[in-house]
Write a protein that binds this DNA or RNA. Structure first.
Lengths: 145, 145
DNA sequence: ACAATAAATGAGAATAAGTCTCATTTATTA
DNA sequence: TAATAAATGAGACTTATTCTCATTTATTGT
């Protein structure tokens, strides 16, 4: 009960198991998104490979995990919790770091308008969007080790 | 000489070979981005798998091919020619279609400003960006077969 | 708290996208 | 047109992800 991970699982009506708790803890422990490799390292063998992928799929099903692909084709995952608001991503091609970025309300509003136009133009219902930015962090970058 | 594909290759100083011509023709033939699978089908065995991937890498090296990953994790490629201006992508989760979308100048300007702020905030040099939109096309969608 | 039942797990086999190797073919150039 | 370097095809190899199945664990109703 004391545990956030357990709470998350019970909130979403999925059974509370050790692998799920361990994966959630590893994800909760990291401020920024993680590649599956990084996640596997953090878990250091405590969860079988097949189980790790199954748990990630479980978390996707209950809509609290977002999965995407980095520019170097690694699979990246990040938890989407209530307190984690709408954001976008910044990728460093030097150190591989992936950083969560919030854009201004002004920007999101204009994008929303733009999306309405596009919906009409292409007869689409647009449900989600994503802005990705690519570059390199400078020497002083706080995110580089 | 009559061929656009040959012209593209010679413009970029890479040798003119049959597989390269065939791959370029298949890409030129399609208005929207193609998955590697779709591309392979279009080529219907005329180019070996290993050669196809090599040619795609060649085209990436001379910066006329853009590669990205669709929401269902397929690898998608599209030619980036001079007449093909800066654009973004719209993904249909029903039919899998990927559509090129141009956003307004107003939007791109605001995004550029936003990006300058982010560069300062994170000590980054941002070289590129991408907007992806996800949704479903309606019955009348001209892009659905 | 406990037994019955359903669900989840681990280990490793299977699959598939992409890369690599190497002998042969093709393009370039002088 | 011959010599040389580059590109190709075929299939072996690698590696991320999924699948299978026997075993373990969580849930639930009593």
């Amino acid at each position: 009960m004391s545990d956030i991970s357990k709470q998350i699982l019970s909130d979403h009506k999925v059974s509370i198991t050790n692998p799920r708790i361990l994966v959630l803890e590893a994800l909760l422990d990291s401020k920024n998104p993680l590649t599956v490799d990084e996640l596997q390292s953090k878990l250091s063998g405590s969860v079988a490979k097949s189980t790790l992928y199954r748990v990630l799929n479980d978390l996707k099903k209950i809509k609290i995990l977002h999965e995407f692909t980095s520019p170097d084709n690694s699979t990246v995952v990040e938890l989407l919790l209530e307190d984690h608001s709408h954001h976008h991503h910044l990728f460093c091609s030097d150190c591989g770091e992936i950083i969560d970025v919030e854009m201004s309300g002004e920007f999101e509003n204009l994008l929303a308008k733009e999306i309405k136009k596009i919906e009409k133009q292409f007869n689409f219902l647009i449900q989600d969007h994503r802005v990705e930015m690519f570059g390199v962090c400078t020497d002083q970058c706080a995110n580089c080790k």
